[in-house]
Design a protein around this nucleic acid. Structure first.
Lengths: 218, 218, 218, 218
DNA sequence: GATGAATGAGCTTTCATTCAT
DNA sequence: GATGAATGAAAGCTCATTCAT
């Protein structure tokens, strides 16, 4: 619990103090939503799991959807800020001379974040298709910004001759797909398998840079 | 409607004759499930959209979950049969001398299939995390088989010297991630954007084979 | 029950067929609402009294307020139509040569109506202050029309020299207040007392025409 | 607020000191109850409007009904004492030689009282049908006493030859109905209309004394 | 086969009331 | 005295499912 509590604290406590029961409600809701989906989870279930009366949930969150939003929305903010912008600045500040170093640094960050917040990310991914409000937020604050920064980074390395000439938007899409696809496969699809993170990272970098073909191929 | 009906026919008619009402129920259910999720759709809603009485749904499908399964299950069968096995055989029968030709052929098939059945695929992806029955079927009949065949194909081209030496499982994962990730991005995330399918396909192939790096890089 | 059913039939059946359960719901709702008020009655209570599952109520009436409205609204229509307009026409058609005859005829009608529909009228009066929708309907369809016709009638008898000169609006207000006030006192405030309707009517008529003073007074 | 506070003071302060919060609760409760009815108002709503914690309400009033009663009950006392008894005594002390003067004096009193306490009166009238306790109190302490005194007054003026011979109970009923009916119409039904109080009073007196008919009528 | 009224369990939400601080 | 978080019963309402017609 203490680790979970810490996470909750980190994500939600910002300015407002969270009571003990509120934390329990959030933890229970995150667990249930990520296991059975938002629509498939009843507030009664959450209350029981949190060890709280059902009325208590509605004291703190006006509606069930409110509860969902107050779990997922802060995630959006935390997803962009610390990572996307920081990494880019490091690139432009010449902290990473080589693409590989950039990708490596980025993936390490992402990995830890993913591992910590996998439940909330699962909820987010599951509900984006059904909650227009969420979808909008996601595109506005996460997808678009990520994509734009990636394009910038790629242009930077293309200028340095480290990346092939190709519309940077296409390159960005391919790189993002590969990186996030691989991470999701590891943590969402096969969460129980044992992975050697470092080896995997190096393989993905190698793949992004040089592909699977030999020089002999075609 | 006539086109939708045809699809329904193609996917479901197998042995049993489908009455007019049954088809309408299936079409309505697919639309609603893919828009609002399985748990977020009421049978009443489906009945209204299908223009039938609520009782009629339960005459044909014992439960709501039954209805879901009878939509998603045939998809599983159609996902393996026609594609995965056929393509592999063609590879082994030396119909595709080069990796590129194999990927190209496979992607064309997938693209059309995706476009046609995007709603059902959406339902499938959405519900796999929540329906253990579905998840099992998916891993058993789709994921595992796809993966195994891919590994075979990669070994085949590695033996021919067209692909670099790397554990074929890792290579398969990277290739699958790239191909399906890219297709999903196109059809699920940005369904309204205009894509030039051929150009995209060639870019993905180029990426899989040679990556984004220049020879100069590192 | 058979008498109540008849009333229900008369008030609600207009075009739409009412199922047996629907009638029972209406009867139970009328009884409960008039006894404990709209807000003080639970749908569960109505269901039990009607011998029906709670869900059944909501099959026929989307919300509790819907149920209230479908009880009270038709009353509005029935209150004006048959009476107010008919009576007026009779006055203008010279069926009533004397004011007294007009008042007498009107009161007889009202009395019977009141006796029959006292429960619904109670609900109506109770809820008008809290349901803006109802209040509007009442003013528009009942109060205004009643008042306007009354003014016409009074002008008619003033022209014939049977009523004193006074702004007809004031006269109308005084007459309406007296008539309806007296009826309400009899049937709402003292429902258990025994009244000789004919004697009461004559007294009210006498009062409206000549007041309580003697010629000697002032 | 200062005027309202004064009223509150006047009605409730009797023996017990009212704290600032208590006054605010009473004012808020009166406003809400008269607008939305007792059953339609939540204690939470009252607390918010009063700017106090919900718990504070229950510190001063054991239950919600307690709060209602402590608003409405003192009204009952104030309705009899100052008016009904005083007025009667003045009649018997020959302060009013003519019926008209009596009615005029009484109406002036009532008018001011009504204007001041209209909200509480509304609550009282609304809740009498649903709170047996209230109904009993009202009949016992207000209705009956008022009626009895009225009968006395009427007998007094009948003896003086100023009022026609008629069972004094019937005369009382007609007079009360007219007076209170007219006042209620003015202040409850059409609160926004502009009335010339004096003109209205004279018209009502004239009506009670001589009715609407001409000598020619019948 | 098809209907749609009926069901009752269960859902989200509200509410008067309590109590530790 | 005052607070407001917490409660749990009950409210209004929805839903998958059944069944007589």
């Amino acid at each position: 619990m203490s680790e979970e509590e810490e996470l909750i604290q980190q994500l939600f406590a910002e300015e407002d103090e969270l009571t003990d029961k509120q934390k329990k409600i959030l933890i229970a809701a995150i667990e249930s939503f990520s296991e059975k989906g938002y629509a498939g989870t009843s507030t009664n279930e959450i209350a029981k799991k949190a060890g709280v009366a059902e009325g208590t949930i509605f004291r703190h969150y006006k509606t069930k959807k409110d509860l969902l939003m107050s779990i997922v929305a802060p995630m959006m903010a935390k997803l962009i800020g610390p990572f996307i912008i920081n990494d880019l600045n490091k690139v432009l500040d010449r902290e990473f001379d080589h693409v590989e170093d950039f990708i490596r640094a980025m993936m390490e960050n992402r990995r830890e974040f993913l591992k910590k917040h996998i439940s909330i990310l699962k909820i987010m991914l599951q509900e984006i298709p059904f909650q227009p409000e969420l979808r909008e937020q996601f595109f506005e604050h996460v997808a678009k910004k990520t994509f734009d920064r990636f394009v910038n980074v790629i242009q930077h390395y293309q200028a340095k001759g480290q990346m092939i000439e190709m519309p940077p938007e296409s390159a960005a899409r391919l790189a993002i797909t590969t990186i996030f696809g691989s991470l999701m496969a590891q943590y969402l699809l096969f969460p129980h398998a044992e992975w050697d993170d470092e080896v995997e990272t190096e393989r993905i970098i190698q793949f992004i840079m040089h592909g699977l073909g030999t020089t002999k191929a075609r």
